[in-house]
Each structure stands twice: as C-alpha cells, then as structure tokens.
Design a protein around this nucleic acid. Sequence first.
DNA 1: AATTTAAAAGAGAGTTATTCTCAACAAGCT
DNA 2: AGCTTGTTGAGAATAACTCTCTTTTAAATT
Lengths: 152, 152
Amino acid sequence: MSMSFYTADSLKAELHERGWRLTPQREIILDIFQNLAAGRHLSAEELCELLQKEGHDISLSTIYRTVKLMARMGILRELELAEDHKHYEINQPHHHHHHLICVRCNQTIEFKNDSVLKIGDKTSKKEGYHLLDCQLTIHAVCPACQRSILPV
Amino acid sequence: MSMSFYTADSLKAELHERGWRLTPQREIILDIFQNLAAGRHLSAEELCELLQKEGHDISLSTIYRTVKLMARMGILRELELAEDHKHYEINQPHHHHHHLICVRCNQTIEFKNDSVLKIGDKTSKKEGYHLLDCQLTIHAVCPACQRSILPV
DNA sequence: AATTTAAAAGAGAGTTATTCTCAACAAGCT
DNA sequence: AGCTTGTTGAGAATAACTCTCTTTTAAATT
C-alpha cells in the first residue's frame, strides 16, 4: 500500500533512488497538496492560480510535469471527474474516498467504502502489481436531473 | 440497474421518451457495439474506422455525439484508460468488469468483482441517484516495470 | 569550495481529442 | 404530403496537454 505522508525528505529520498532531483518547485507543489483541505482536488490550472496567489511563479509546463510525476509515484491521485480535464489530490489511505457523478449536471458526491481498497489490494497483489491508487467511479443521474424534463 | 440489451426498438422508445429520434446512424452504432466481442472497447477513431470498413460513412462529429449520448443513457460505458482518449464499450451487467492499469507502460488487465456493482448500487440508491455505470480503476505498477531500471 | 554533468525549468510552439457552428437533411407527428 | 424540429456533416474552433530547446541548477565528484 502506498505511503501516507511525504515530507520533503522522503520525497527527496524517493526521487534520488531513481536518479532524479528534488527541486524547489516540486517541494512547493507537494506542500500545496498536503495543506489542502481533505478531499479537495485541483486541476493544473487551479494549482497554477493557487501557486501564484501564494507568490510562487511556477510555469504551467512544470506543473503538468510535476503532477504527472507525482501521480506515477503514488503521491497524488489523478481523478477523471466529469469535466474535460484532470484533477489531482493527495493520496492518503485514511481519507480514501470515491466519486458519484451525475452525468447530466456533473454534480459530484464523495463517498467512502472500506471494501474498495481491499479489492484493489487483493487484485493488484494477485496480478503481481504494485498498487498506487484505486478509485470507484459511479456514473448516475442525480435526483434533480431525474425530475427535470429538460433533455440535458 | 441499467438494462442489458437494447434493440433498435427499445432504443427508439427511450429516445422518444425524451423527444429525440432514432436515426440510421444511431442504430448502426448500437449494432456495432452489441456485436463486439465481450470486453472489447473502441475509441471514437477506432469506431469510425470500423464503420468505414463495414461500408458506413458516419461523420466523426456524429460518432462523438452518439457515443456521448449513449453513455449518458447508460447504454455505453465511457472508459478512461491510460491513453489520452476515451474508450467506449457496451454496458452489460453480466460482463461487468474493471481495469487494472500500469501507470508506466499502460498495460491493462480486466478483472471481475461482484462486490463492486453492489457497492455502486447501494451508494447510488442511498443518495437517490439513478445508477448508470460503476467502474473500479486501479492504478499500479506491473511486474515488468517494477523490475525495469529505466525511469519510465 | 570549485567543477562537472545531467536533470529540470521556463517559454512558447505544436499536437490532438473533442466540441462548436451552421446550413442541409430527415424522422415522425398531424 | 407537409411541417416542425432534432440530427447530420464538414470544417473551424477550442483547450488540455505535450514537446522542443535553451538556460538554469541540483547534487555528485574532485
């Protein structure tokens, strides 16, 4: 199972294992995600704005590269919500949750379910895979949209 | 729970409920997916090629519109595999399966698990949502990539 | 501490999946 | 048969993301 908390040091160690480097940009981005409210996720654009608001000018290229890197390391979860871009959030088993998405209005509800991670663990182990993240995504129609006559 | 099989007639009925129409294009695309081998999925481009091979010239615009429509109706599942485009497959509870994806080489394994659909059912019911589809996606590192020294 | 070297950042161009626009067409009701 | 309005097709437009290439810099080595 993936680690819960990364410090700058543990990130540095893991990067060095692969011949990579800890840069200020990577440290700052990790910090942003770790201080985000539980369950809050960001798109690349949103992360860029948030960084600028905090006085960090990190290029979009670097942001895209970094979130993808961290997702591949298991530090971040890459979410495919209903919008046309990805979202990222910190990957912490304690706050592990899933998403119920309305395909019409895109309203999204987070929910927890302990069995899911167990299934993910069991399945990846069985195939010899090293688990990074598992997500249950439910596509459905919310109560409001069921009622609406509009063919949205 | 969503229906298993759509005929041209049941598709027509469901479209008409919403003031929509059954067109030859929609009928042909439904037919393609229903005759696809179990578990086989197509991207919009692949679907376009397959249609052409069978002598049906349906524009890419229509293909994109149709698969999205059918996904929103619960007829198709919209899959986010590791590639940079979506895949679609027929949504049949009997053949309901999930995906284990290697984040490094993108190799994907399909697996079944009966609990997942139950969780999806229970969760959507609890929130008053009408279930269309639920997918468990596991991101992991495959055995080969764990062994490889290359930092892919 | 200075040197070295290869990874990473930044800037902006490039790519590509997907959506949008709008005129022409046609499904299905009357 | 005619009418209404949803749908198609063609291509332009959009936007998320990646790539390229030069400059910078982390960090290992001396």
